[in-house]
Nucleic acid binder design. Structure first.
Lengths: 174, 174
DNA sequence: CTATACTTTCATTTTGTTCCGAAAGTTCCG
DNA sequence: CGGAACTTTCGGAACAAAATGAAAGTATAG
């Protein structure tokens, strides 16, 4: 007996949504937000707030807040359909685009502030002459340099087309 | 009037600890754990539980739990000093080692489970014949492939010496 | 202008996390 | 043994984040 297509689809969708939510959670992102994103990633057509509410069993306020946030950070778009008042939302589907958006956002929120602090700290301890001061300065400098490298790399990667980068990655793997 | 070396050092240390804590927070890591790690990163000598408690103004239980966790995930080591009962802790200081440890840990906790789910979902939707089923399958497959690539890349990078990778990165940037 | 359909906001409740410190456990030494 | 020095565990207090749903706001059609 062949598996029902509808339930297969539904099961896969649910597993993916759950996992994407868990991943978001590990990244310090609101779980619901990640789940909405997952739902929209797998939706061939844009979805309305009400459809999102229904699919994930969440409240209107919750859905609204997180949809808005998804739009803000560039992972989703609002779609208006001619003649319809209701708003729809769709996710950016291209995986490389998605990756770049996430990369940029995380660089901005995580790497950049850290880089600033590390540079300041390394600078301010540069003049220290005692053993501990020197050791701390060296450690800070090593960290600062690394984060600096990470920042340039992230920026460069996020600005490159998939077709240019993926082969380079594969070469690195070879 | 020259700045006091001691307070300069103290200020830099505190800023760094605060920032590292914030970064940990964004990564879904216990803030205190990240702060302890920061403190140890900047400590030329290993520190005892009591020193950590005092420096960060945290309780014994809290310090103990998080130090243990840091050891578990390979970011710190327990150090026993001959003739002393008290335990000391030190962080891995080498920045590239540190990066690799974090990379491996995050791959294990974030990428691997996601990869499994994506593969399963992509497989189970392979047979679908209606428009929506096909679209969903394609999207899942694109995500699965990307995560697969990320996994190999992470593995490869974490297993490579700094001297081999950093030049390659810089070339990528050039 | 009004009724209606939809969106947004916000005070409140719910849920989840972190931290503390007391108590129990372990190890070591005389 | 016994007890001193230290480590680990654990229940719950304190805090932080997320979700709810009702109320307020806004646009549209008639």
């Amino acid at each position: 007996m062949p598996t029902s297509g509808a339930s297969t689809l539904q099961t896969a969708r649910e597993r993916f949504i759950a996992q994407w939510g868990a991943l978001g959670s590990a990244w310090g992102i609101n779980r619901t937000m990640a789940q909405i994103h997952a739902l929209l990633l797998l939706s061939p057509e844009p979805r309305s707030t009400d459809e999102v509410m229904e699919a994930l069993a969440i409240s209107r306020g919750n859905a609204n807040t997180n949809l808005r946030e998804l739009v803000t950070c560039g992972l989703c778009r609002k779609v208006v359909r001619p003649g319809e008042r209701r708003e729809y939302f769709e996710a950016e589907k291209d995986v490389w685009q998605l990756f770049c958006t996430i990369l940029r956002e995380r660089k901005r929120r995580e790497i950049d502030p850290t880089r600033t602090v590390l540079r300041d700290c390394a600078d301010s301890t540069r003049g220290l002459r005692d053993a501990e001061g020197r050791a701390v300065h060296e450690q800070l400098k090593a960290l600062a340099d690394f984060v600096e490298l990470a920042a340039s790399l992230a920026e460069r990667v996020a600005a490159t087309e998939q077709s240019k980068i993926v082969p380079a990655m594969l070469r690195l793997l070879g």
